[in-house]
Design a protein around this nucleic acid. Structure first.
Length: 454
RNA sequence: GGCGGCGUAGCCGAGUGGUUCAGGCAGAGGUUUGCAAAACCUUGUACAUGGGUUCGAAUCCCAUCGCCGCCUCCA
């Protein structure tokens, strides 16, 4: 039985989908106005693993991730760069998916862009007005009337009083709004900004409405899982719920939130300017290592992704790759099927990847022992378990088979092997040192020498 | 100020009342190897502090200290 931590209930609960055997999932995507950072990488990997695990458990998963391609930051950045909003969004969306592809993050089944769903947003806004949950301020826009919704704040556990108390202390309040906590559904057009026609005049959608409208449009009422970074709980997800339920549409059954990535004990954020790029981390340490460092910490726990952390994770990954190389060189093929039930049941407990990692390490160690002892069948089964479990985590091992293409290195490796056979160790060591100088590390196995780049 | 989380051995990171242990990285010793590399084996009595509950607490309760997040755009 899959159990998940539901932010709304603040508890680990059984996952019971809307439709048996299916799982519909909406994960808030990015606002593409700058390059992807480490936090984007973590969040994407976390939800990708949830998706893979659900799929592995037999659910037919429908996975939706939106793109917020019209928003204040995009408008400001496009103006600063002298480009259009859509071009700017496209550039950074492409960069984002380029990194996601390197990380083997599976593409969503649907990737709706906010600008393509303006009619649906307007329809939802109209419903909210009709339901008495929203009001129009001429020349300003349409606002959600928070006080009209009895249980507003239920996701983030905030009361209306405390919200009103703190409102205005950090954000300027529009005096025309009925309450300082009311938020914009539709913003009246401003000169030089993109605009759409609407029953309330030219303008553009507020930030939160897109996700309510698109999730309902694509996944329907009462879809299963809604996810995102935990910085979105309030106000974004809270407002999504208000917009959907305020119009009478049951919204997400479960809420999943992944914790933030910290840098130097502070939350990384674009506004603070402390955001190491995802690309540079992958460049330096590899995609599998990045995934591994994410997986080592539970998704609901804050973590730092430092160079040291990546190095340690890289050392672990290297151990797994070494196993794959050994098995490959020794002609040990992974068994066609693998029993990874021990791994899966750990994962069933709210995607407990840290403990799942321990299970995989156990198999790795046992596989090496089996290879040491020449127990080929055991080794084959264990290697298969390691590979299958890692696949659920989105990691594919490098067994070195792609290293065969370098004729020059292969020739040197062979020359060294000959020298060794002739017991000319001075010569064989000289060749090994030469290769080491070029970043090539040799490993002599019982079935021959394999090499890798260090 | 309100809401929430965290503080575990050199480092990362599980664990929520009890024989024996998370797991990993780094370190040390050993086996293997011509020497290495890789691998395997052995090796660490840690739980912020002070009280309390209990036969027994890292684990429950209270207090204290420290760190972090949300309350503003943010993955």
């Amino acid at each position: 039985m899959l159990k998940i931590y539901d932010t709304a209930q603040r508890a680990i609960v059984d996952f019971v989908p809307r439709t048996e055997g299916a799982a519909s999932m909406y994960v808030c995507g990015v606002t593409p106005y700058d390059i992807a950072h480490l936090g984007h990488g973590r969040t994407a990997v976390v939800f990708d693993i949830m998706r893979r695990h659900l799929t592995h458990r037999g659910y037919a998963v429908t996975f939706v991730t939106n793109v917020t391609d019209i928003e204040d930051k995009i408008i400001a950045r496009a103006a600063a760069k002298g480009t259009t909003e859509s071009d700017l969004a496209q550039v950074f969306q492409d960069e984002y998916w380029q990194q996601m592809d390197r990380l083997d993050v599976q593409r969503p089944d649907e990737m709706p862009r906010a600008t393509e769903f303006v009619p649906q947003m307007q329809a939802l806004i109209a419903e909210l007005i009709a339901a008495g949950r929203a009001y129009v301020i001429e020349g300003s826009g349409v606002y959600f009337d928070v006080a009209s919704l009895e249980d507003y704040g239920k996701l983030s556990r905030r009361s209306l009083e405390q919200l009103i108390d703190s409102a205005g202390s950090r954000v300027a309040v529009d005096d025309d709004k009925h309450s300082p906590v009311d938020f914009a559904l539709w913003k009246a057009a401003k000169p030089g900004e993109p605009e759409w026609n609407s029953p309330w005049g030219l303008g553009r959608p507020g930030w939160h409405i897109e996700c309510s409208a698109m999730a309902l449009e694509i996944l329907g009422e009462g879809f299963d899982l809604h996810g995102g970074g935990d910085d979105l709980v309030f106000p974004h997800h809270e407002n999504e719920i208000a917009q959907a339920e305020g119009a009478g549409h049951p919204f997400a059954r479960y809420w999943l939130h992944s914790a933030m990535v910290m840098v130097g004990s502070e939350k990384m954020s674009k506004s603070a300017g402390n955001f190491p790029s995802l690309a540079s981390a992958i460049d330096a340490h590899g995609a599998a290592t990045f995934r591994w460092v994410v997986v080592r910490t539970h998704y609901r726990r804050q973590m730092e992704i430092t160079d040291d952390a990546l190095r340690a994770a890289g050392a672990e990954m290297e151990g797994f790759n070494a196993l794959a190389r050994r098995a490959h060189r020794g002609g040990i093929a992974a068994a066609p099927t693998a029993d990874i039930s021990a791994f899966l049941s750990v994962m069933d407990n709210d995607f407990d990847t840290p403990n799942a990692v321990a299970v995989i390490h156990g198999w790795r160690s046992a596989a090496n022992s089996a290879l040491d002892d020449g127990r080929a069948d055991d080794a084959s089964a264990l290697v298969a378990q390691v590979r299958a479990a890692l696949a659920v985590l989105g990691i594919t091992l490098d067994d070195g088979s792609a290293n065969g293409g370098d004729a020059e290195i292969d020739a040197l490796v062979e020359a060294r092997a000959e020298a060794r056979r002739a017991k000319k160790f001075a010569e064989s060591d000289r060749i090994r040192d030469e290769l080491a100088g070029r970043g090539i590390v040799l490993e002599d196995t019982s079935s021959g020498t394999v090499w890798r780049r260090s």
